[in-house]
Design a protein around this nucleic acid. Sequence first.
DNA 1: CTAAAAATCGAAAACGTTTTAGTGTTAAAA
DNA 2: TTTTAACACTAAAACGTTTTCGATTTTTAG
Lengths: 341, 341
Amino acid sequence: MSRTTLQQIALSLDISVTTVSKALNSYPDVSKKTIERVKEAAERLNYKPNSFAVNLRTQQSKTIGLIIPEIVHQFFSNIVKGVTDEAEKNGYVVIVMQTNQKFNREKETVEFLINKQVDGILIALSDETVDYEHLLRSQNLDTPIVMFDKIANTVACSKVLIDDVKAAYEATEHLIKTGCKELVHFRGPLHSQNAIDRLEGYKIALLDYDLPFKEENVYLCEEMSFDMGREQARKMLDENAKVDGMFINTDLVAVGAMAEIKDRGLKIPEDISVIGFSNWFLSSVITPSLTTVAQPSFSMGKISFNMLLSELTNKRNNTKVTHETIHLPTELIVRDSTLPL
Amino acid sequence: MSRTTLQQIALSLDISVTTVSKALNSYPDVSKKTIERVKEAAERLNYKPNSFAVNLRTQQSKTIGLIIPEIVHQFFSNIVKGVTDEAEKNGYVVIVMQTNQKFNREKETVEFLINKQVDGILIALSDETVDYEHLLRSQNLDTPIVMFDKIANTVACSKVLIDDVKAAYEATEHLIKTGCKELVHFRGPLHSQNAIDRLEGYKIALLDYDLPFKEENVYLCEEMSFDMGREQARKMLDENAKVDGMFINTDLVAVGAMAEIKDRGLKIPEDISVIGFSNWFLSSVITPSLTTVAQPSFSMGKISFNMLLSELTNKRNNTKVTHETIHLPTELIVRDSTLPL
DNA sequence: CTAAAAATCGAAAACGTTTTAGTGTTAAAA
DNA sequence: TTTTAACACTAAAACGTTTTCGATTTTTAG
């Protein structure tokens, strides 16, 4: 019951292996008639090319690596979906690997995928990553990289992301316009470009509306968890009784903060308004429902794959590869955790 | 900057390619001394085996396929995590593909992975699947299959799942013991073995506690969505005013149902108790928090991979492969959507 | 010191494909 | 008629490993 090979088709038709191969790949220098015959025979014998041989010969695997911090996460699982869907349409297959936000694992993973000889890599950086040697090495070894969402500004490669500054600005602005005066921001990890940009957007909005930016109103969340949200909210409520608006880096953290606020007997949004980020499904079903910023995760996955694909085909055709950065639009989703305008 | 090959190492040491290969793989018929020399040279030249060549020669790719209905789903993304973690530890890589609960896509996907020559396949069946030809074909073509969670009883292969009957029994029992008299069940799709078994557990519990089983108290949810939960709850509330307990196939559906119940001004659990299934994170943060059945998704992934791995190694050693079925324990997580005991 | 055994190495085949560089045959152009 | 050009096909090399089967050398035993 072993697989049929070109050899066997050639034998059964009494022509050469070369011709069979060319016929199957529709080379111009094989007659219509033999193309017919070969294709018929291939069908009849249920021929499927041996991908190991094809890979070896063509030096490409039609496989890409996808590196994310964590798959059990609505945003990233949507990314995976976007990438795999698009990859499949183009005959590519994707290997998913996680870093669990550890820089060392990120290095190992990149190394591993290069050794596995994937055609290219899609990566969202770990929040710990500040050294980019491993990524440059990948590029040197001719494995193109496209970054998405969690990127490094200094690495020269294509990138697809959202405009975090703008999104954060709009969220903060909404808090201000609905009457909040004392605004707190729960920021993400120090090295995360997302976190840096969102903080920046928050700052600019404050300045634009003549509200003072206070260092002590920025709370650091080293990890994006429910518990961290609760913990920092506890700290905040102990320290600052005047807070009436919060812009929080991530929905999950926001939900944790809301739990603490509710436990203290404070009302959302009457006492404190809350805005999250990412528009997890979660946010629409908690009480009160959470105002948040929607990020296009599925299409970010699709677009990232397509950018990588175009780099791969460019490389194959020896046309110059150019890097571009795409910003995807975000949308403020207004729900019940903020006051009406 | 091209990769170093065995050839190059051989040349630089003035020995044969054969010996280099053997040295690297620690064959017994190569001296300690040359093993040293070769390994040193390999290190120095940064040799990494060309996996395409290795695949072709050994006829295995150290790659497995993982087929799931839908990745944007807490249960399945946890499965993916379990599988990939365990695979990585064993030098395997996993290709994730989704069926979106479509039988046709499931067939195509299996076919695709076989053609890609993965070493084995891990699959959770689509809810539509009632025909298993494609799976048998895979086995005939020597690609082992292990099923998890959504399985087909009639296919001979290893399986890892939970005891849905028992889990459903315990959930229903809990509703009864907390005083519910009129119990409704929201069941899953008709062909889903999970749904069938959970319905069975619900039935048996009713019988054991001398409560009548009423056909009209079972509501069919064709898809496991928030909206479906809401819709069926609406129907239920219109039809049956006496309902005081609900056992629902999936947390997400339960959350939808809860939304409708709350919108009608009914109290959970005072008027109606609700139990879900799967213990999504969601369930712990909604109001009221949802009593549910915890399923071990992460370890299910790990165990599934290990079962496949042992089949693969057995196959390699020509030892007989035996199929086994493993049942993983579930746990009833009591929260605020049910009355105290 | 010789024969047998063990240790060490290498030539070559094989995995199945793609592509280069032709060869021969036929049709069109001179 | 000869020369070109177009057409249809193929032998062989190449991709980089692994493994079989001998060959050669070294060690051990008698």
